[in-house]
Design a protein around this nucleic acid. Structure first.
Length: 932
DNA sequence: ACGCTCACG
DNA sequence: GACGTACGTGAGCGTA
C-alpha cells in the first residue's frame, strides 16, 4: 500500500466544476469534427489540467492530488433552505454531455476523480483539506471561488489557477474585510444572490465586515443587535436574525463530509502516456495530443476527421479462454480485484441469478472483468443440486457471504470515478438496487450496439460476441438444461458456473472496447450518451415502482366475460349446426367457407382461410350472423385471456403491484417495448375493453395522472417535411384532420361532415406510415382507384410531403440508414432490395424518422423527469409511447401536472427548436380510466 | 416453434 | 404490368 499521509505531504484539491464552467465560457463552442459531439469545455479542461500538471513554478509541488466535482444539483443544503441555488439555470445542453467526459479526462491524466451524492464539491474539498491538515500535512485548493476562502488558515492555502496567484490570509482580508475564520459571518450577513443565500437585506460585504469587526463574531452581533446605532440597520438585524442564521449554515463548510477515499490513495502518479494520448486523440484535440505525446515521449496516433468505417486495428488480445478465470472464495482475493478495478478505472460486471425476473430472482453470483482475459466469478448463492425432504437445498460450502461481498463492492460500484460496464445493465442495476447499491456511472454494450446497429440485428450478448468477437459463448442450456427439468442457476455446480459467468464479463468488457471507439466514428455518441444510457436508471426505477392493480375488479369482469362467452358459444354452435372450437381459425374457416359456402379467399403459406376481423366484418356486413357473433366472442375472449385473467398473475407477492419490464432496444425506431406483462397495449378503443383500465389504481391518498402528447407524430412530420399549411394549423391550434379535409375537398372546417374528416384522418396517418393506394383503400373500405385519387390530391395540396418521402428514401438508399431530428440512427438494410420486400423497407424508412423522433422526445422528457419532480410526492410509473403515467399524492396532482407538462412540452429543446408547438393533454383520477 | 389474431401507439 | 402492402410492438392460442 501507499505510505501514510502525514507530515511532509502536500495535497492539491482541484475544483473540477469551476474548471469546467470556466473552460466552457472561455472557449467558443467547439465540436468534435467526426461526429459533432460538443467538446469545447473538455478541451479547455484538458488544457488547464495539462498546464497544471506541467507547471512547476516554485509553489510547493503536490505529493497528492485530486479533482473534485459537484455531483448533482440537489444537496443537503436544499433541506435547510429549499431555495438554495434554486434559480440557478440548468447547465447548457451542449455542456451536459461534457460532464462525464471531463471525468474521463481527469482519469486519463491519472488524477483521482472525486464526487459524492448530496454534497457539493466545496464540502468535499473542505473535508479533505481538514483531513490533510489533521494528518499533519498541508493542502492547496486550486480554485478562485470565494466560498472556499473560509478554509484558508494554517496548513491550507488557495491558488487561483488563472492568475496563478496564491490566496492567503491577507488576500482574504482584502476581499472580505475579515480574516478567513470570520468569512462565513460576513457571507451570512451579506448573502449571495448568485446562490440564493438570503443574508440580511440591505447589508453588503462592506457593512457586514464593519459589523463583524466591531462585535467580533456573528452570534455576538445578533445578541447585541439592539445596541446598533443606525435604526434601520438595527431593525434589519433583529427582524432577519433567523434568516441570517440559516444563511450562515448555507455558506459554512465543515469537515464532516464523509470521504469515500483515503488521502493515501491520492498519491500523485505520472500520467500513463499511452492512455492520456489515446484519450486526447479520441477527443480529436490535435494540438494538445501532439504536445502531450511529445513531452511524455509517446507516439501520437493520427487523428482522422472521418475515420474509415472499417474497424480500427484492434490491439492484440488474449483469446477468450473459459478455463483461465478465477473463482473468488475469500475476501483477500476480492480485495485484490477491487484494487484492480480502482487501478483501471472501469469494470465489466455481470450478475447471475435464479431467474429472469429481476424483481423476484435472487443473486447467485457476480462476475467481474477488468481487462480482456482478466475476469473472475464470485459465487455467493449456489446450492446443492438435490432438495432435501422439505424442499430446501443446502448452500454449497466455500462461498463468500453475499452481504459481505456487496458491502465490499459497494464503494467502487457507486464511485463516480469508476465506470461500470454491463450488457443489458438495467437488469444488473435492478438486481443490485434491491440490495441498496445504485451503480453509477454506467456503460452498456447492448445500448452501444443499439445506437450503432438498430435495424441491422439484435443486441443480445451471444449474438454480439459472435458477430464482433468471433466467439461463441457457452450456451446457458449447457448448464441448466431445457424444458421441464431445467435447473435454476443456483443449482449449477460452481466449477461449471464460473467459466460461463466470468466469460460473460470478459466478453462484455471486450465488446465495450470494441464499441467505444465506434460510437464517435459512426456519429452516434450523442445518441448513446443522451438518449440510451440515461434511460437505464430511469426505467429501472419505474419498473421497480410498479403500478397497483385491483384484482377483484378484474376477477368480476372475468366472470362476466365467461358467462357472455358461454352464451355466444351456444349461439354460434347453433348457427353453425355443429359444435366446434371457435378459437381455432382453422376450424372456423372450414365452417365458414366449406360448410356454409361463404365467399372468402385462401391465405398465406399454410393455405388456410383467413378469418381475420377484416374478413369477418365484411361477412357480417353482408348480413351473416355467425361471423358477427364470432367477432363478439373473439373480442371478449381476448379481453379475458390476455387481460382480466393474466394481469392478476403478475402481481408481485411482496409489493402487491405489477412490475412490467421495458426493453430499450426492443423496437428499431427508438420506441420502448414492454413485456411481462405488456402494459403498453391495455385496451382503450372499445368501451368494454376500456373498463380494464379501471383496475389500474392508485393507493389510498394517491391519484394516477396521465399526460400525453397530442398528435406528436403529425407535428414532427409538419416540422421535418416543412409543410407550411400543417405548421400553421398546429400553431393556430385548429383541428388538424378537419383542416386536411378542408384543403383536400374544398369544404369549410365549420360544420364538417364527420365522414369526410374520418377519411382525412386516415390519410394523415397513412402518410406517416408510407401510404399506398391499396392500404388506404382497405383501411377506408373504398375502391382502390378512389383511395389513389385521395392520395394524389393530398400530394398536390401538400407537395412538401412527397419531397420529404423521396428525400428520405434516397438518403436511406445512399447511406443505408435514416436519422431522426436528434441524430438517432436507424439502419435500413433491404432498402436496395428488389421485389415485394422493397416496398416494406421503403415504408419503414419513411416512418422511422418520424416515429423515432417522437420516441426521442419522450425519452428526453423521461430522463429529465426524476429531477424535475424530485420535490413532489410523485413517481413516474409507465410510458406508453406518447403518454406518461404517474402516481401522486392527492394534494400534489395539480402541481405535478404543471411540472410534468412543462418538461414534456419543452423536451425537444434546446437540441431542436421545433417550428410547431408540442401540446400535452393531462388527466387525473383514482384509476387509469379516469386519468386518461 | 410458428402462424394467426388482436390489443396498443 | 405484377408483385404485395399501411408503421412499430407483445401475448395467447391452436397447430404442427
Amino acid at each position: 500500500m501507499d505510505d501514510a499521509f502525514g507530515k511532509g505531504c502536500h495535497l492539491h484539491l482541484i475544483d473540477g466544476s469551476a474548471f469546467i464552467f470556466r473552460a466552457y465560457h472561455a472557449l467558443p463552442p467547439l465540436t468534435r469534427k467526426s461526429d459533432g459531439l460538443p467538446v469545447g469545455a473538455v478541451a479547455g479542461f484538458c488544457n488547464m489540467l495539462w498546464r497544471y500538471v506541467q507547471t512547476d513554478d516554485g509553489h510547493t509541488a503536490p505529493t497528492h492530488a485530486a479533482v473534485i466535482f459537484d455531483h448533482s444539483s440537489k444537496t443537503f443544503r436544499n433541506d435547510i433552505y429549499p431555495a438554495y441555488k434554486a434559480q440557478r439555470p440548468e447547465p447548457p445542453e451542449d455542456l451536459r454531455p461534457q460532464f462525464p467526459l471531463t471525468r474521463d479526462a481527469t482519469r486519463a491524466f491519472n488524477i483521482a476523480c472525486i464526487e459524492t451524492q448530496g454534497y457539493e464539491a466545496d464540502d468535499i474539498i473542505a473535508a479533505m483539506a481538514c483531513a490533510a491538515r489533521d494528518a499533519g500535512g498541508t493542502a492547496t485548493i486550486i480554485s478562485s471561488d470565494k466560498d472556499l476562502m473560509q478554509l484558508i488558515g494554517d496548513g491550507v492555502d488557495m491558488l487561483d489557477p488563472i492568475k496563478n496567484k496564491l490566496i492567503g490570509r491577507d488576500e482574504v482580508f482584502e476581499k472580505f474585510g475579515v480574516f478567513p475564520d470570520r468569512v462565513v459571518d460576513v457571507q451570512a450577513l451579506a448573502g449571495d444572490p448568485v446562490d440564493n443565500v438570503p443574508g440580511a437585506p440591505g447589508i453588503g460585504i462592506k457593512t457586514a465586515a464593519l459589523l463583524i469587526q466591531e462585535y467580533g463574531d456573528l452570534e455576538t452581533l445578533l445578541d447585541r443587535a439592539a445596541e446598533i446605532k443606525q435604526p434601520k440597520r438595527r431593525q434589519t438585524l433583529i427582524d432577519h436574525a433567523e434568516q441570517i442564521r440559516i444563511s450562515k449554515r448555507l455558506v459554512t463548510l465543515d469537515c464532516d463530509t464523509p470521504l469515500e477515499v483515503t488521502l493515501e490513495s491520492l498519491a500523485v502518479q505520472r500520467p500513463d502516456a499511452e492512455r492520456l494520448v489515446a484519450f486526447l486523440s479520441e477527443m480529436e484535440f490535435r494540438t494538445l495530443t501532439n504536445r502531450v505525446a511529445e513531452v511524455l515521449g509517446a507516439e501520437a496516433p493520427a487523428i482522422q476527421a472521418a475515420p474509415a468505417s472499417d474497424a480500427p486495428a484492434a490491439p492484440e488480445q488474449p483469446a477468450i479462454d473459459a478455463s483461465a478465470y478465477e473463482t473468488v472464495t475469500d475476501m483477500a482475493a476480492l480485495e485484490h480485484w477491487i484494487a484492480a478495478i480502482r487501478e483501471t478505472g472501469h469494470v465489466a460486471i455481470d450478475t447471475e441469478t435464479t431467474g429472469l425476473d429481476e424483481m423476484r430472482a435472487d443473486l447467485v453470483g457476480l462476475s467481474l472483468a477488468v481487462a480482456p482475459g482478466r475476469a473472475c466469478y464470485i459465487p455467493v448463492g449456489h446450492v446443492a443440486g438435490g432438495d432435501d425432504l422439505f424442499g430446501q437445498s443446502a448452500r454449497v460450502e466455500g462461498q463468500l457471504d453475499l452481504e459481505q461481498v456487496l458491502a465490499a463492492l459497494k464503494p467502487v460500484l457507486e464511485d463516480p470515478g469508476v465506470l461500470k460496464i454491463g450488457q443489458n445493465m438495467k437488469y444488473d442495476w435492478k438486481m443490485l438496487a434491491r440490495h441498496g447499491i445504485e451503480m453509477t456511472p454506467l456503460a452498456d454494450t447492448m445500448l452501444m450496439s443499439y445506437a450503432l446497429n438498430a435495424g441491422t440485428h439484435n443486441h443480445g450478448m451471444d449474438e454480439l460476441a459472435e458477430r464482433y468477437l468471433g466467439h461463441k459463448c457457452i450456451p446457458i442450456k449447457e448448464l441448466i438444461g431445457t424444458g421441464k427439468s431445467q435447473l435454476n442457476f443456483a443449482q449449477v455446480a460452481i466449477d461449471k458456473a464460473a467459466p460461463y459467468a466470468a466469460e460473460d464479463a470478459d466478453v462484455t468488457l471486450r465488446l465495450w472496447q470494441h464499441f467505444a471507439p465506434m460510437l464517435p466514428a459512426q456519429k452516434v455518441s450523442t445518441t448513446y450518451h443522451t438518449l440510451e444510457r440515461p434511460m437505464i436508471p430511469v426505467l429501472a426505477q419505474m419498473e421497480m415502482a410498479g403500478i397497483r392493480i385491483d384484482p377483484d375488479v378484474l376477477r368480476r369482469m372475468s366472470n362476466v366475460f365467461a358467462q357472455k362467452m358461454a352464451q355466444l358459444e351456444d349461439e354460434i354452435h347453433g348457427l353453425a349446426g355443429q359444435s366446434f372450437n371457435i378459437g381455432s381459425p382453422k376450424q372456423l374457416g372450414e365452417i365458414l367457407f366449406d360448410k356454409m359456402g361463404l365467399s372468402g379467399g385462401k391465405q398465406g403459406k399454410t393455405g388456410a382461410f383467413s378469418t381475420s376481423a377484416d374478413v369477418l366484418e365484411d361477412l357480417a356486413a353482408e348480413g351473416h350472423d355467425l361471423p358477427a357473433r364470432v367477432l363478439d366472442w373473439r373480442q371478449i375472449a381476448k379481453l379475458k385471456s390476455t387481460y382480466t385473467d393474466a394481469l392478476p398473475t403478475y402481481v408481485h407477492p411482496e409489493t402487491g403491484r405489477v412490475h412490467t419490464s421495458y426493453s430499450i432496444t426492443g423496437a428499431q425506431t427508438g420506441r420502448l417495448s414492454s413485456t411481462e406483462p405488456n402494459l403498453q397495449n391495455i385496451p382503450i378503443r372499445t368501451e368494454e375493453g376500456r373498463r380494464i383500465r379501471q383496475a389500474f389504481i392508485a393507493p389510498e391518498g394517491y391519484r394516477l395522472v396521465s399526460l400525453d402528447y397530442s398528435q406528436i407524430e403529425l407535428r414532427i412530420l409538419a416540422h421535418v417535411a416543412d409543410i407550411p399549411a400543417l405548421k400553421q394549423a398546429f400553431r393556430e391550434g385548429i383541428d388538424i384532420h378537419a383542416m386536411t379535409a378542408s384543403q383536400m375537398f374544398g369544404v369549410p372546417v365549420e360544420g364538417m361532415d364527420p365522414m369526410i374528416r374520418r377519411q382525412a384522418k386516415a390519410i394523415n396517418f397513412g402518410v406517416i406510415y408510407g401510404i399506398s393506394g391499396f392500404g388506404l383503400s382497405r383501411n377506408l373500405r373504398i375502391p382502390r382507384a378512389e383511395a389513389q385519387a385521395f392520395i394524389d390530391t393530398y400530394f398536390e395540396r401538400f407537395p412538401e410531403i412527397r419531397a420529404y418521402m423521396d428525400k428520405t428514401v434516397a438518403d436511406a438508399k445512399q447511406d443505408g440508414y435514416v436519422t431522426t431530428l436528434f441524430g438517432r440512427r436507424i439502419n435500413t438494410p433491404g432498402i436496395n432490395q428488389s421485389g415485394p420486400a422493397a416496398g416494406g423497407a421503403r415504408r419503414a424508412a419513411i416512418n422511422a424518422p418520424i416515429q423515432g423522433a417522437a420516441a426521442d422526445i419522450i425519452r428526453r422528457a423521461m430522463i429529465r423527469m426524476p429531477d424535475a419532480i424530485a420535490d413532489l410526492p410523485a413517481r413516474m410509473l409507465l410510458q406508453v409511447h406518447d403518454e406518461l403515467v404517474f402516481e401522486v399524492r392527492d394534494d400534489a396532482a395539480a402541481q405535478l401536472i404543471d411540472t410534468a407538462r412543462i418538461i414534456m412540452e419543452a423536451a425537444a429543446e434546446p437540441s431542436v427548436r421545433l417550428s410547431v408547438p408540442l401540446v400535452v393533454d393531462a388527466g387525473q383520477g383514482a384509476n387509469w380510466a379516469e386519468a386518461h
